[in-house]
Amino acid sequence: MSPILIIEQVLNGLQFGVMLFLMAAGLTLIFGVMGLINLAHGSLYMVGAFAAAGVAAATGSFLMALVAAMAAAALAGALVELAVIRRLYDKDHLDQVLATFALILIFSEGTRWLFGSFPLFLDIPDALAGPVTLPGGIQYPLYRLVLIGAGLAVAALLGLLIGRTRLGIRIRAGENDREMIAALGVDISKLYTLVFALGAALAGLAGALVGAIQSVQVGMGEPVLILAFVVIVIGGIGSIRGALVGALLVGLTDTLGGIFLPELFKLVMAPAAATSAGASLASMSIYILMGAVLIWRPTGLFGARA
């Protein structure tokens, strides 16, 4: 196996990881601050992707498509929080799961009604199309490098927001003791709506960015949502740093496992059987990683211990 292939797959894993981070960051904020299990978070990812595809087709501007994706997802998230989620904070987790699962069905059928059942396609902007030559003569798509940089920049900005601003202080305080900050005069309802909209905007941004390298279709958010839950379990619920580290671990494990495990099995098995066994184990590798982390640290890598 050539070093160039390994480096390319590492970069693919990083790109996959930072996109998972955008999903997982919003999810961990919502779960950590509100204590809410939101299965509809993947639907907000889908809303962002469809909004970006629609605006890009109408205007030809990829930048406007990204802005529209974040705005549409944030608006959808705020409306959902006001209309549905607000009634679930004091409910059992089973009620939250059932209600947000119903939202998945509503979003899916509503999107199919608006855009149809056929997938849409979001073109990579001309300025970011084509490969770029990296040190060592490696040819790698420029757009994927931009995705890595954009995801890391969002992680840095989100870290500053949570750690260095008054809003971040309120979010962290709401995570630790919502009754106390409400008693101190903070409007907890507005804070929750804002946090939910922020998480939705991040999911919408991820959907728009990924929509340029895969088709935009109904139901595209649910597989990513499952991986996002794995990420926050590994990183620790409520931790932005944990979401980033967990997302990068999951991205690299999933990508590198897909190429190394089949090669490893070929040492002891026939090529056809080795490819099948390696692919099966690769698909389970992130869950094996999650189990190993939880055995070592039941609260996740950066989760707060009771």
Rank of each mutant, 00 (worst) to 15 (best):
A78L: 15
S108H: 10
E81V: 00
V132G: 01
T28I: 09
A156E: 13
I106D: 12
D92M: 03
G137T: 09
V33A: 01
T133N: 09
L114M: 15
T111E: 08
I37E: 09
Y89C: 07
L147K: 08
A65T: 09
I138F: 01
D123H: 05
V33Q: 02
A76K: 04
L75P: 10
L128A: 01
F31G: 08
P131Q: 08
F50K: 00
A99D: 06
A52P: 12
G130H: 02
V132C: 04
A83K: 11
S108K: 13
A68P: 14
A57P: 14
D126K: 10
V84S: 14
A51S: 13
A127F: 10
A71P: 14
R112E: 12
L88T: 01
G48I: 07
E81R: 09
G32C: 09
L39G: 04
L82H: 14
V154R: 03
L98Q: 11
V80Y: 11
A76N: 07
G130K: 04
A71W: 06
V154T: 03
I124H: 04
V132M: 06
F50M: 09
A74E: 05
I106F: 06
T133L: 15
L157T: 05
A102T: 14
L88E: 04
E109C: 00
Q139C: 02
M46A: 14
F107L: 09
F115P: 11
A74H: 02
G137W: 04
V132L: 07
I138V: 14
Q139H: 10
G130Y: 03
A51G: 10
I30S: 03
P141E: 06
A129F: 02
I104C: 07
L134R: 07
A68I: 13
M46K: 06
L128P: 15
Y45F: 11
T28Y: 02
A58Y: 01
A153Y: 01
K91T: 08
A58G: 13
R112G: 00
F50E: 08
P125I: 00
P131K: 08
W113R: 15
D123V: 00
P135R: 06
G151P: 15
I124E: 05
F101Q: 15
L147D: 12
I138D: 11
V146M: 07
S43G: 15
L157W: 02
G32Q: 02
L152R: 03
G137L: 03
Y45D: 11
A76E: 04
A150W: 10
G77S: 05
P141R: 05
L66Y: 01
L82C: 10
G54P: 11
A153F: 08
R86A: 10
R112Y: 00
A56C: 11
A153D: 11
G116R: 01
R87A: 12
W113C: 00
I106L: 13
L134W: 01
A53H: 03
G60H: 01
L66D: 01
V84E: 14
L157P: 09
V80K: 05
L105F: 00
W113E: 15
G48Y: 03
S108Q: 15
F62Q: 03
G54A: 15
V33H: 05
G77P: 13
S117Y: 02
L29I: 12
E81S: 10
M64F: 00
P131L: 12
A57M: 12
A71L: 15
P141V: 06
L82M: 15
F115G: 14
